[in-house]
Amino acid sequence: MFPAAFDYLPAHSVDEALAALLKHGADARILAGGQSLIPAMRFRLARPTVLVDINPIAGLAYLREENGALLMGAGARDFAVEVAPFIKERYHLIFDAAAVVADPIVRQSGTIVGSLCHNDPAGDWGVVALAARAEVVVRGNAGTRVVPIDDFLIDSFTTAVGEGEMALEARFPTPNERTSGSYQKIERKVGDFATAAAGVQLTLSADGTIAAAGVAIGAAGPTAKRVVEAEKILLGARPSIAVLRAAAAEAKEISDPIADTRGDIEFKREMAGVLVYRGLLATLKRLQQGELH
């Protein structure tokens, strides 16, 4: 299968890209890793008439820590995250996810920012971003905005990026030493989107109670979802099996998946709970909590 015809505009700077987007309006699309857009174009599910390629923009693929946050440029690819030692060391949630997005070849092209912009209901990075309380830097003609992830993910395949705008960067707060996380995904095979997914990040306070909690689930509605009630249960609590179970139950409660070849609704909802529970358990293990009771 082959895409419908389009015009190709390689952008060599962000300004050039924005100018092109402005000029071509709704007909234009940004081409980042291309790992969602190109397959969609091959099936002619997407038919942009202009593609603005941001790959030629120098210096957009950065991955660096600055002012208490990990900054991922719009050109940063999954693979870079997967192999960066400092991510493995400190950003446990992100590290987990980077190894299970798509497949190892797709990850050498796909970008994290592109994935957030694509906002597939079963995508992985939205879940991670919610649990990690990330922000996305969006730039347009009117200037630059920093959008909290909760406001960024609007609906399936819809984000806060407006016409003529592009996302420049994703920002993930740097976890402190008492913070860890875990990403849990059920997939039928490598390269499959999630049947169910959960991202969890916890910060413990000195007394062992939970000082901060991020819990999100994927493939459980039109976009990745924050499990607000679970976070409330966890916040301030001393970790115990009962607390974890209660938080997990909230995930199941708000999970609102569709039935498809991956599974029926009942199964997927159950898995949302199981994965949140397992994610919390794995996180606490990483934080070297002893046996839970």
């Binding site: 497949d103 039928r188 095979k189 490598v190 390269g191 499959d192 989107f193 070849t261």
Partner: peptide, 16 residues
Amino acid sequence: NLNTNFTEYLIPTSLE
């Protein structure tokens, strides 16, 4: 037909 391409007709990879 619900299994019209390799995203739905699943071929196991080296990992599975």
